[in-house]
Write a protein that binds this DNA or RNA. Structure first.
Lengths: 127, 127
DNA sequence: GCGGTCTATTGACAATATGTCTATAGTGTT
DNA sequence: AACACTATAGACATATTGTCAATAGACCGC
């Protein structure tokens, strides 16, 4: 832990929930099957900076989720352009997303607690 | 990324913000100097399960923050009982906490966006 | 007096997670 | 022909977290 901002990798890099890519990708796949690059592009909807997001991160996450049995993929049948893998969520992936949702609610509450305590302390000091 | 819950380390382990210990410890030190073990005990206030939280994690985080110049510590002057290090936040630590607060607000908003999208999709499906 | 638990701290090693880079390849534009 | 975008994936490095062992004082129960 070099120390968050200003040192080491990704200066100014934001700290998000660990493995946050996972529930985002699972959720997008709930809306329908998609291929990797379009999922990548959809991540800006959840706060990812697409200019800084290396595509290999997304593809590795997709592969890992497939290894875990939450999604499945098959090569599309394009006749034109590069071949694309089409990903689809499985029932196990749906269940996993339910767990993620419960866990993210708790994580949000924990962040809220710290932020509220911080803001309350700032107010009491200035009064 | 074996896949969150059910496999690998920490079965059922929750996924929180990376390095979340850091702002929690910094905030507690804003309230006044404290020694390591009391900071450890105060972490239940922010969602940490004290029964599962290894003290070495907290002490390492404190050391890392001291290395980064955000806190300072000195050996207390107890005549009885084991010696204790007393930690104190520095102005740089205060500034770093301000950055953490801004970042945590964004992280909370990102979680909110995913949770709202998820709940909206669940409702549209059942209607 | 001894064993166990709690308090108090720290380092070493292992495991997990993320970041970066390289590579291949098709299409479209300049 | 070069560049950018699309599309995918592996290797290597770095960052972060988890676990274990170690030391030691105080207190409590037996």
């Amino acid at each position: 832990m070099p120390g968050g901002w200003g040192t080491g990798r990704g200066q100014g890099r934001r700290r998000r929930v660990m493995s946050f890519l996972q529930p985002c990708l699972l959720f997008m796949l709930k809306s329908g099957e998609a291929h990797g690059y379009s999922l990548l592009n959809g991540l800006d909807e959840f706060g990812f900076d697409l200019e800084r997001l290396d595509p290999s991160l997304v593809y590795r996450a997709l592969r890992d989720m497939e290894d875990s049995g939450w999604v499945v993929s098959n090569w599309g049948e394009e006749s034109q352009g590069p071949q694309r893998r089409v990903y689809k969520i499985l029932p196990e992936g749906d269940e996993h997303l339910v767990q993620w949702v419960a866990d993210l609610r708790r994580t949000r509450d924990e962040i809220d607690r710290l932020l509220c305590a911080y803001e309350n302390q700032s107010q009491s000091i200035t009064q």
